[in-house]
Amino acid sequence: MKVAVTSTGRTMDAQVDPRFGRAACFVVVDTDNMEFEAVENTNVDAGGAGISAAKVVIDTGARAVLTGNCGPNAERTLRAGNITLYTGVTGAVAEAVERFKAGKLTEATGPNVQSHSGMNS
């Protein structure tokens, strides 16, 4: 199964980006073999960033998202794409995926921040 992690860099060592909509990029990891690819978050400067970012993630075929904060628009879009959301995730991308595999992350039940929260960070 593939999971998408918001990341400040393009590798497994990079830190989890706390923002979803305006994340620097997504590292998409296959949990079966830990192979990964970095996907640009192409819409970082556009309006409706959370929604655009969610569409990018959906197109990668990921089934789960690991991130810090996620606003309501992005959350709704991900839910429509049947993607499971995990918020409050920190540390390096590789560690986050290991915690996910070990079942140590808790599924988010909704957005954990307001709209526009990542606009400036």
Partner: peptide
């Protein structure tokens, strides 16, 4: 991004 299609769903 005011109307978005995800598969067959429209948000």
């Amino acid at each position: 991004s005011a109307i978005v299609c995800i598969g067959e769903k429209v948000l």
